[in-house]
Design a protein around this nucleic acid. Structure first.
Lengths: 377, 377
DNA sequence: GCCCCAACTGTATGCGCATACATCCTTCCC
DNA sequence: GGGAAGGATGTATGCGCATACAGTTGGGGC
């Protein structure tokens, strides 16, 4: 029986293959690990036995003996954690519903897409180095045991900064190399990979201020305790103070905690109070989209009445009306860079801590481009 | 030194912890595996040593001893394989480019997004079962060794149907359970998880034919050798033959191999020849988008002159002009179902092969909705 | 005060493979 | 044809943990 997989009859091992091929287990092992060390005729005989017996080497045993697993881990929190608490129940109904699907603005929760790209990059770079990628998603209180579990399975671990307490990171780092993704440069011994939040926001703000005369600007912060938010705000402040006092815009700052909905509320009260600034710059795209939502609802013309810009380069920003000017982060490269740094450290454990700053790019779109609107399509 | 991770000084083991805590390794193991079996005072002492020494259990050793890894694998091919052959080279330039980002139709290559959702579902279901997810992406000729490698690391493997030769699957299945995703019901011993392609396309075609009088219809196939394509075509044929001969549309069939570009070429020649059917139904969204591209270029009005529909529910179809009517596949549920089935089989290896058919949904959008165009935004 | 049982803890072993080292077999050269 | 230098293969061991089983301890009942 083919589908019986591994249970019941125990899986075949090197010993089985060795006996079947009439060689020692060392030879079997060599055929699989360093085929060149084995005579052609022997190798073929062993491979025939491997096929005949359906032999697949146990990575556990291999990892134990070789003291390395060939796996790198990627860990990030699931901001959307509470979404799926239900057990999976197969639905066997046969009817196919036919429903109208009216145009709607993009759903939120695009954080996951963010990770998807990082993950893809990590997988690519892992593959290029002959490694396999293990993904771990932290959910609530289990997070700690999950990271630890994963740490035991891999040769190196990439962790989204802030998703794991420092204490745990240090614990893990005593066993394997750890690289932090999207974290700030900190005064620690970890390797880091991140984007240049400060320079990106600086460039974005400069662009907005250069587009036309801005008397008042609103900066919408995210969660102030996060490094990303802090760095972006620094970049913004820098742009502001770089301008001559004469044409330096008046500044208001408010926080919407990276939430589209909260930003929408803020935008609404702004619009209905009539105190609309000349530009709104947000620490991420979700909040910028929330601002756009509110302004559209209140008939506030973007970009003619007010310029709006975000940060991240999420997909939804390419489909909004108007399309959103933003700072594009190289998500996939973040993932690649993380694994890249891990392999470097694995190859050379004693090298000093590395910090990679990936460059970003300002994408100018209609939300900060006054003038004749670009025709769609 | 914290960042030194695992190299050089060898990682701490149960033996170290046991000695530090003044107990035997069995007790250390029990503290981690079945805390209830150990006296409170002992447990606390051991845990203190674990923390003090930075102990993280080796999953390799654990897996070897316990004969299970606690990992499930997900394997799929990278259709976009040749994209990233370059090594990752960190870019350290400090300048932030500011570039205009004109509206553009979505890039292709959305296949990956397809997998992203499956992956997410698989991860969720794995987590719910106390498992970890290992992802493998097949690329070219390495694919075979990659699958085999992964098979050695996991307790069960979910594989996208068609991405691995049957021979290899059977080989692997002698060691661990294998579930095929999106494959057809076949006469084999594997477990299967797929969507109801036939019923979905049947419902889609019925919808199109019911929308208004269709005299001539073009069906655009994908790669005819794939099960998905075959099942969808069956569903389409079924819808056709279910109609009274009197109002059964004339049929043309052509293949664009699931490619947007090829479909665009087909659409162009159609438009310039003047032989435009009343409806075009495509075996996937990418091809439907290609048709839309061509018709737009040639000024053919969709949906007034011709109805167009696709299959898959990819994101780009929600942003096209007009938006694309399609059959939405529950990608995430596919991933969840696959892992669900795996856990079932792991729990009960002797159960008969399972086939799960997930329901689909027809999303009716403007590409098949004649009448006043829905205002955007 | 003694015995028995339950709750703990320790000892010993094997999981399946990689690999250092020993052994045996070829070739090749003088 | 003898021997040396590799080349090919076999032998023995340990990787770190889970666990069956043996051993120890502490109470409780009589």
């Amino acid at each position: 029986m083919i589908g019986g997989g591994g249970m019941g009859a125990k899986a075949t091992t090197v010993y089985d293959v060795a006996e079947h091929a009439g060689v020692s287990i060392a030879t079997v092992s060599r055929v699989l690990r360093r085929p060149g060390d084995v005579r052609d005729s022997t190798r073929e005989r062993v491979l025939a036995s491997v096929k005949a017996l359906g032999y697949v080497p146990s990575a556990s045993a291999r990892g134990l003996a070789a003291r390395r697993t060939g796996v790198v881990g990627l860990f990030f929190p699931d901001f959307d954690a509470m979404r799926e608490t239900t057990a999976f129940v197969p639905d066997r109904s046969g009817a196919v519903p036919v429903v109208a699907d009216p145009p709607a603005e993009d759903a939120t929760g695009s954080d996951l897409l963010y990770f998807d790209e990082v993950l893809r990059g990590a997988e690519i770079e892992a593959w290029r180095n002959g490694l396999v990628l293990l993904v771990g998603v932290g959910r609530g209180e289990d997070s700690l045991s999950i990271v630890s579990d994963i740490a035991g399975r891999v040769d190196g671990l990439a962790v989204l900064a802030g998703s794991v307490p420092d204490e745990m990171l240090e614990h893990i780092a005593r066993r394997i190399p750890v690289v932090l993704i999207a974290g700030p440069r900190r005064d620690d011994e970890f390797d880091h990979v991140s984007v240049d939040n400060r320079a990106g926001m600086r460039a974005l703000a400069d662009h907005v201020f250069d587009t036309r005369e801005i008397d008042g600007v609103l900066y919408v912060r995210g969660v102030a305790s996060t490094p990303d938010d802090a760095e972006r705000f620094d970049g913004f402040s820098e742009a502001l103070s770089a301008r001559a006092v004469a044409d330096r815009p008046g500044l208001s700052v408010v926080s919407a905690e990276f939430s589209r909905e909260r930003a929408r509320v803020i935008g609404s009260s702004l619009a209905s109070s009539g105190h609309i600034p000349d530009a709104v710059i947000c620490a991420n795209d979700q909040m910028a989209l929330g601002i756009l939502d509110a302004f559209r609802d209140h008939g506030v013309d973007v970009p003619r009445r007010v310029l709006v810009a975000g940060f991240d380069g999420i997909d939804a920003g390419r489909h909004s009306e108007p399309r959103l000017t933003t700072v594009e982060q190289p998500m996939e490269d973040l993932g690649r860079a993380a694994v890249h740094v891990l392999t470097q450290r694995l190859a050379n454990p004693s090298q000093p801590p590395v910090t990679l700053r990936l460059p970003v790019k300002v994408l100018v779109r209609e939300s900060t481009t006054p003038g004749p609107p670009t025709p769609r399509g």
